[in-house]
Design a protein around this nucleic acid. Structure first.
Lengths: 232, 232
DNA sequence: GCAAAAGTGTTAACTGTACACCCATGT
DNA sequence: ACATGGGTGTACAGTTAACACTTTTGC
């Protein structure tokens, strides 16, 4: 067995792709990702995902949560899951670093106080990003969009209670295309993902029937459509 | 910025869950995983997945391929994809090691020469396994089963050409339940995954209509059933 | 009453499962 | 001819998309 001194060791960091649906000025909602602008090389002025080194006695998952809490004051994370690990020897031009990316979701109602150099950036038009972060965001987006289709992952982006119209805007922003409120309600209700609270949303002011409020039955990941073809 | 000496570094290894469908004596096929029996502590005598440290200038994916090729003489890998990264500080009782697991598939016809202490072990009844390897195998199995349902991943387990009955046995072993040959053929053909070669399999000797030979149209991963609910 | 927004009913297309039936070969 | 295994036709059930229609509110 090799002596420990012979075995190479690596810097290892955790990387967070945190999504949140942001309401733009024109009342359209947009899928956005948390990023901060780098001050120095490498990739000075480029935008980067929140990240940080793993401690000696800490899980990668704990590491992500810790860095998000301390560096961008983000504690209202509804869901966090591991995405993938990037290991290209030259992804960091200064020093080799292996990075494990996580996917995090923040409800659209949360308004964490961000430091000055951090912001929510629309995924649709990302600025120049540091390292391989642009492709990590792409991976995360794909994962989110798939998982919205076969699981109850919407709970991570939605407020505690919501109208179907609000939920439609959230799904529409996350998926990047129009979603029918009618069918959204029917599908999610049949799958048992959402249930009516019995209350109604306050009047919108401009007339129209008041909307019923719904909630997600479970605010933890559940695969509601296992999609097992060739079932027994 | 912290000086490099302040940043903790870690041993990092790649871990392979390599699956192959093995034909048991009673003509039943069984999903099996490649493992080897440890000689020394920790976990002496327990079975372990193939693994090994990452080199200084090597990708994790390359590392898996290299270890499989050199240590168990396995080069006929039809598919290899990253699974997940395990980072529990105490998963290795001797020294902290972060491990990134990969899922590999070997066609049922391949017969690589394994070293004496390595073997194909039926996933259905695993022996005592070292480290967290049992749960990694469980993860990999789940991933395989799901992915067989919505992608053409079967190509990784199937020979270059095969009859529908052979393919049914493969799917049946991998999924762990009976699969109807009739419906398997129809579904895979409708999705464009498989196509007839035009040739027939040699007679089985016991009579019966000779089976047509099929092949996978593409031997690279393709999502054939994207399963996007809420489509545009 | 009328406009606006929410929610329901109905239909059509598609997909997968089950099962009966026909086809090609060896003995 | 007949047994044996391979392949096809057809019917049924479940799911989703599309769209017309009804309900409930503010003005």
């Amino acid at each position: 067995m090799s002596r420990s001194s012979e075995v190479p060791v690596f810097r290892h960091e955790a990387l967070a792709v945190v999504f949140k649906i942001i309401r733009a000025d024109d009342a359209a909602s947009v899928l956005s990702v948390l990023a901060w602008q780098r001050a120095r090389d490498p990739f000075a002025d480029a935008w980067a995902l929140p990240s940080g080194p793993v401690n000696e006695d800490e899980t990668l998952g704990a590491c992500v949560a810790r860095h998000l809490a301390t560096k961008v004051d983000l504690t209202e994370i509804a869901h966090l899951e591991q995405l993938e690990t990037r290991s290209d020897p030259h992804r960091d031009p200064f020093r080799r670093t292996i990075a494990t990316a996580y996917l995090g979701l923040v409800p659209s109602t949360a308004e964490p106080h961000l430091p000055d150099n951090a912001a929510w950036i629309p995924v649709a038009d990302l600025p120049t990003m540091a390292f391989d972060h642009a492709s990590v965001v792409a991976s995360a987006t794909e994962r989110l969009q798939r998982k919205l289709s076969y699981s109850n992952l919407g709970f991570g982006l939605a407020p505690a209670t919501f109208t179907i119209a609000q939920l439609r805007d959230i799904y529409s922003a996350a998926l990047g295309h129009e979603v029918s409120a009618t069918n959204l309600q029917r599908v999610l209700q049949r799958r048992g993902q959402i249930e009516a609270t019995g209350e109604s949303a306050p009047s919108s002011g401009s007339g129209g029937r008041p909307a019923a409020l719904y909630r997600f039955s479970t605010r933890a990941l559940a695969i509601t459509d296992p999609f097992a073809t060739f079932k027994p």
